[in-house]
Structure formats: C-alpha cells, structure tokens
Design a protein around this nucleic acid. Structure first.
Lengths: 209, 209
DNA sequence: GTCTATACATCGATAGAC
DNA sequence: GTCTATCGATGTATAGAC
C-alpha cells in the first residue's frame, strides 16, 4: 500500500516538474522576444512577467535573479545552435561540408543578433555562464573541432585561426549588414583561403624533413 | 568702442567654451574609467558625477542624455585609434607594415575591452553613433583601406574579407584570452594567408585572359 | 506556485531657483 | 552652470494569504 502511494507521489512530482519546466521555457522564449525588441540589456522583469501572465515576484519561482535568466537564455541559445549544427551532414566531401557548416553558423548568428550577442560577446555586466551552460558552449566548440579534424586540421593554432575567421565573418555580418549576406557569401572563399594556407605549410613542413 | 567690446565678448566666449570642452573631456575620461571597472552598460551617472565633482543633474549641461555620453565616448575612442594608427609608418615593405598595422589594431582592442565593445560591437540598447562620430569611424576604415591599397588590394570583397579577419582576431583575443596574445601572435600568419589567397586569385584571373 | 502588498536602493531625466 | 527637489521606472527582495 505504501508502495502504491509512493508511485503516485512520484507521478505527481514528475507532472509538476514538467509543468514547471514548460513554463520556464515559455518565459525564456518571451525573454528572447523582449530582447529582440528592446535590446538584450534592456529586458525588464515586470514587462516579462506581464507577457507570461505572471506578477513580477512570481518570476522568482523560476529564476533566482535576472542573471539566472540570462544564463537560461545562454543555455537555450547554445542548445539551438547544437540542434542546427547536428543537421549539417558530415558528408562525403569534408571540405564542402565544412563550408556548409560555416555558412550555417553564420546564418545562425545573423538570424538573431541579440542571441549572437549573448552567446559570443561578453556584453552583460556581471553575467558569467554557469558551469552547466558553459559546458553547452564547449559542446559547440567540440563540434566545430570535429569538422576541422575531418579535413585534417588539428593543430591548435590552426584551430584558433579558424575560429577567428568564423567569428570575424559573423561579427562583420551582424554589425555591418544585419539581415544581408555580404559576409556570409564569403564563407566558401574564406575556407579555401584557410585550407590552402594549411596545405602550403604542411607541404613546406614535409620538405624540410 | 563697440568693436572693442565685441572683441572682449568673443574672448570671454572662447574661454568659457574652452573650460566647457575641458570639463567634457575629463567627464569622458572618468566615464571610461567607470566602464572599465563596472562594464560599459553599467555606467551610473551619479557615480560619474561624483568623480568629476558635480551633482548628477549637472551632467546634463554637458550631455543631453546618457546615450549622448556614449556617443562622446565613441568619438573619443575612434580618435584614440586614429592617433595610434597614424604612428605606424607605411614603410618600405608594405607587407611588413600591414602586419604592423594589424598587430597595432589588435593590441588597441585588447588594451581596453570596453573600448573595443563600444567601438566595434552594437551592445548598448538604443545607442547609434551620431553622424559626426560615425565619420570618425569612417576615417579609421579609410586608413585601413589605404594600407590594403599599398599591397595591391582594392577589390571590395577582398577588403571585406580582410576586415572580417581583423575583427575576428580581435574578438577572439578579447573574448577568450584578454590580456594575452594567443590571437595577436597569429597576425603575421593571417596576413600571409590572406595575401597568398589574393595572389592566387589574381594569377588565376590573368591566366584566364 | 501564485498572488497582493510592500519595501528599498538605484536609475535616467526634468523643473525651477539662483 | 550648478544646484535642490522630485519624478517615474527599474531590479531586487520579502511577508503572508490562498
């Protein structure tokens, strides 16, 4: 009999938790909406509460502070990116799929400027991702490294150069041609340029041996 | 006699204006200080007023709004960059001086993260540089273009690729290794990579003719 | 969990006296 | 130009009813 009750309790707890998580997700979604409208740093907790049919103090049932909300958004954004990345097939031609990977990443950034700001720029005073959220960002980086490995790039310095190229294209696109493709369309050339440089150096390295 | 008075008036107005401009400059300097300490978006006008021995409302004699203060900082930062750039000699070897140019720009960014944020990232909600301030940013870009011209790069797409490379190195340096040189030391390689790509394509272009 | 009610410190901004 | 006084709004937080 006590077992029966225990099972019921667990089911109730699970259902409650599901409701809680669902509500948390809609709050985060509305926070993105507000951020896109007013700017990332201009999110108001009172306005946010209004949009999810809560009173402002009730938000504290879901987030300990405004920074905790930013952390949830940071995690959410990284999960979105991971999902998008997972859909790019590694493919038979690793160079072509690296181009596709880069173009996808660039489009992801230009699609949502404030998301790009939160994920890739340290712009909110006092905000530092939690360990859990930071781990998601690490997964994104690891996925990129795997793509580079597929074309034979493993040297840390070359990985750094590639990340600089990627973030530079994204940044210029977002800052100077939001919604356009002025830098996105340079993705293919950028990759060719990068890989040609890698080839040139490995060849030279071999010649010296 | 009226002439004499008019001249005196002008002198008084000039002196007043000079005092005003000097005070404005110290306010901007203190604002940078605060931004470095608390973050760019976390500047408080009351704390700023305290630091320059004024009451908070008196700041409005110098700036119409907080955004106007950011605008003055934006202009100031660009003037600083122009000054630094002007000190890099074009030199006999245009490639070497392009490397020096890039390294200087990168050091400028890493030297002061919040300055880099204000100048190159759209991060303050509602802030848009005024026409005058934006013109200074244009001068910086023009200076960069002249350096590229010196090594034979004039194609707008190639200029775009170069700006992406520059901002990417700066961004990665600032975001992931502030104070270090992990990306700064890739400046030379990045330039070689870029120019090799430009060469490769112009040669290919000639061959097709 | 959600509410009402309330508190507090801080913020950017304005009015008006001097 | 500088001040005092004040405004409305914000983030943050808590108490206590339901």
């Amino acid at each position: 009999m006590t077992d029966r009750i225990a099972i019921d309790d667990r089911q109730i707890v699970d259902r409650r938790r599901k409701r809680h998580d669902a509500k948390r997700a809609t709050i985060v979604a509305e926070a993105w909406e507000l951020a896109r409208r007013d700017g990332l740093a201009a999110i108001s907790l009172r306005q946010l509460a209004d949009r999810v049919d809560l009173r402002q103090p009730s938000l504290y049932a879901y987030f300990d502070s405004k920074l905790a909300l930013y952390d949830a958004m940071f995690a959410d954004g990284n999960r979105q990116l991971l999902e998008v990345i997972a859909q790019i097939p590694p493919g038979a031609d690793p160079r072509a799929s690296l181009v596709a990977f880069l173009e996808t990443a660039l489009r992801f950034s230009t699609e949502d400027v404030v998301r790009h700001q939160l994920l890739f720029q340290r712009t909110i005073p006092g905000f530092e991702p939690s360990a859990e959220s930071y781990a998601l960002a690490g997964e994104v980086l690891a996925a990129g490294r795997r793509r580079l490995e597929a074309v034979g790039v493993t040297d840390p310095e070359e990985v750094d150069l590639f990340t600089a190229l990627t973030s530079g294209l994204a940044h210029q696109q977002v800052a100077n041609d939001p919604g356009g493709d002025r830098w996105v369309r340079q993705a293919r050339r950028a990759i060719e340029m990068f890989l040609a440089d890698v080839d040139r150096r490995t060849r030279r390295g071999r010649a010296q041996r």
